[in-house]
Amino acid sequence: MALRRNVGLKGLKYRGGGPMLTWELHRISGISIAVFIGLHVFASFLMQQFGSDFGTTMNIVYESLYFQIFIFFVVIWHGLNGLRIIILDTWPRLIEYQHEVTWLQWVIFIVIYGLTVFIMVMRTISGS
């Protein structure tokens, strides 16, 4: 039976290359967004309605520089990769150039994300 196999950590050994890494990262970033932004909404609700210390602590952690850098990574990456998937699904002829498109996506991502992180870190260092 072709489907009778365990996946689990063996997926990491699968040499799918760049496009497979994007699939992996798309899932990880998607789950991260659902969990962390869901918790942020929940914490904001507690903070707004009950003035809860727990919610305030969670939002302080969420809005710290390190966590924001992580959140922007997953959000911007998930958005750009989703756009690539939509474009490739709509014009299947382009799947031929999948590797090139993936590299182009990384270039665009590094420009957008790098600029965001650069501005954030510079403003934190200069203290304004």
């Binding site: 809005e63 520089l65 924001q68 922007f72 965001t116 501005i119 954030m120 403003r123 304004s128």
Partner: peptide, 11 residues
């Protein structure tokens, strides 16, 4: 605004 606030507002 700083950029973190701008991004929070964006999304």
């Amino acid at each position: 605004m700083d950029v973190a606030t701008l991004m929070r507002w964006t999304f």
